[in-house]
Design a protein around this nucleic acid. Structure first.
Lengths: 376, 376
DNA sequence: CGCAGTACTGGGAGCGCTTCCAGCAATTGC
DNA sequence: GCAATTGCTGGAAGCGCTCCCAGTACTGCG
């Protein structure tokens, strides 16, 4: 049932770059209410004033003007004020591109997310990371670029951005197995900070959540509740976080002296969880708990369990991982491991800033915590 | 209960810009497995080759080389090949910043999201918009910048980005009442495409979901089910989408000849929904249906209804709006209005590209559709 | 009074690329 | 055979800014 209206098809997005976008300057609409047809006099920003114009107006050299703009020393009070005035009068704003070219610094950093499916970014996880990053970038002059390096093309473009210093640093997330982006990062001439540890190597700079610790916590919780036949559903085996969670699971079971062989791995998705849960049920009908490495999968598992007539948590207890918003609304509400996602983003940005400033910060592992609801 | 590890505090993010980031060039780690200490020979990217170097190596002028790079005409076949070879040998990649300065085109567009709270971006809605945008940008040479213009500072920076043409176009979302960004947009010297119609004016270029139609659909569904005392919870009155949904609600009730005065408005959040629902219940204990302008609010409302002992949908039917992931997991699963978010992003990007190319596309309204689950 | 500082000052050379234009050779038309 | 195309070609002038550096003016001190 659709609300009737124009259907979206749109014209094919042509190779705009080649067409050489004719600059459109006549966009304008009154900021006032639509009714009163106030033809607001748009202060025609014909062309941004340049530093030369400022200098001329202030009666100083361009160098002096530049010094004032960047408040560098060696400018007399009088000139400084004259320039300041000229800037205000003209509404001068330094041209970031020119500055970037001259200083060889782009004034931007990029958040790159690897993966094979762009839709992955839909995971609310990333949005919160972005917000965290934004919170620290906001206090700097750095812009944030977003790169969903999801296709070969996307990766090539990311590489290009880094090679030509279109960005001064990069935060790299969710690298899988032998991600080609690892090489890109290694050869990048700009600082790289990883979000999450890749599987195959230990980056110099990274921020990660304590996945292993969180998984141990979750599993210990299950053990403490008297569960004895505990299974786990992990993610893809080439994914760092998933493997760390599996480790934590094993840590806890080792301490408890329980069997840790009930492992299945599915896709990090609802369906992946359903499938894995079904397999597990087949394999060990008497299991009494499952630690599931992502809430999305847990949701799927819950569904299968319900269909199989197993009560949660009475028959089988479930603990998820990530604490997604939906975890509060499943039946029953999901006990899960929460990671400080906002902090993850924030700390990645801070670390990147530090590296860009020449420091050599140590990797950071952020604590995770168990959120107890009803499923375990 | 926290997994023990270093706590996140991090140093204060200093004014890195002023410190003048000393370029760090020694970042490197082997792409191979961590165990085998393969000291991979990093192909030291000393300095990117310039066009001059390419030209010299190919034995042509810089102009000619430039023409080849941009595959412009007026280059002999021989030279073209020579340049091509030199490019390959040197691994030349044009410097985007220099090119931007020369052409006065940044090669980037920005997605700006207005609002007073950066956390708003956490709404999965935006992530999906981003994915949609990315899907079309991916085929171009344009980079995507993200601007959470949430503070005055953020807005000022966005303005600066636009004024200095750090970006060639902007997609502007979720403007509220008299958003200062409206003026910024009006005076921007680059194309602006709006996502969603602002309340106070009709932008020249925008893509919107058919909020009004969707709301009508939802309400008609309620009417068709025999409900007679239908209320609605809207969002903040200065929010365009919310008002459009209220209109749709009224449209449907007008046709059915029912009372449309049962309106309450809360914040677009779970708590906002709870509060509004409670007020409504107080005001009209005999209501038998509620159309709620956002799923987040609906979740809150559902909670209140359950606590009040009203069965959903038996006693009161609920329809939400947005079709967030959690809508499938509420009790009961939420009937809601789905909007094509991915398409929204995609069409915004396409429209922006079109405007940048000099076209004057018409505004676009994307259809919404009712997703029937159990709550109504 | 002269000399070494010290605090400004502006000229000018880049940053790496695009693009205009004049020059030139190889065609073409008459 | 000569002028008028046509197609290449490279020199050079930017794009708007930073920053080095040589130069000037002024101070203090012996």
């Amino acid at each position: 049932m659709w609300s009737g209206r124009r259907i979206c098809d749109g014209q094919p997005s042509r190779a705009v770059r080649e067409a050489g976008w004719p600059v459109v300057t006549d966009i304008q609409f009154p900021p006032g209410k639509a009714k009163e047809k106030t033809k607001v006099a748009i202060e025609t920003p014909r062309r941004q004033p340049t530093l030369d114009e400022v200098a001329e107006r202030a009666g100083v050299s361009r160098s002096a003007a530049s010094r004032v703009i960047n408040n560098a020393p060696h400018v007399s009070r009088a000139k400084r004020e004259a320039v300041q005035r000229a800037v205000d009068d003209l509404g001068y704003v330094p041209n970031a591109t020119a500055r970037a070219l001259a200083t060889q610094q782009a004034g931007a950093v990029v958040l790159a997310i690897s993966g094979d499916d762009p839709a992955m970014f839909t995971d609310p996880f990333f949005a919160e990371v972005v917000v965290g990053i934004n919170s620290v970038l906001e206090e700097t002059e750095l812009e944030l670029m977003l790169s969903l390096a999801t296709s070969t093309r996307g990766q090539a473009r990311l590489e290009q951005v880094l090679r030509t210093r279109q960005a001064d640093g990069v935060m790299l997330m969710s690298l899988h197995g032998d991600d080609p982006l690892a090489a890109v990062a290694a050869n990048a001439s700009v600082p790289v900070v990883f979000g999450g540890r890749p599987l195959n190597f230990e980056p110099r700079y990274y921020v990660d959540a304590d996945n292993r610790g969180g998984a141990r916590l979750a599993t210990e919780h299950l053990v403490a509740a008297g569960r004895r036949k505990i299974a786990t559903i992990t993610g893809r085996p080439d994914e760092g976080a998933g493997m760390a969670r599996l480790q934590g699971f094993r840590d806890a079971l080792a301490v408890a002296g329980l069997d840790n062989s009930l492992v299945d791995n599915g896709e990090f998705s609802e369906d992946g969880g359903s499938l894995a849960m079904a397999r597990l049920l087949e394999r060990a009908p008497d299991l009494d708990a499952v630690f599931i490495a992502s809430d999305q999968m847990a949701v799927g598992a819950l569904r299968v369990l319900a269909r199989a007539g197993r009560a949660v948590p009475a028959d089988v207890a479930i603990v998820g991982f990530n604490d997604i918003p939906a975890a509060r609304h499943t039946t029953p509400p999901l006990t899960t491991v929460n990671q400080p996602i906002h902090a993850l983003g924030r700390e990645m940005a801070r670390m990147l800033l530090a590296v860009m400033a020449g420091d050599q910060p140590s990797p950071l592992i952020l604590p995770t915590r168990l959120v107890t609801r009803s499923s375990a």
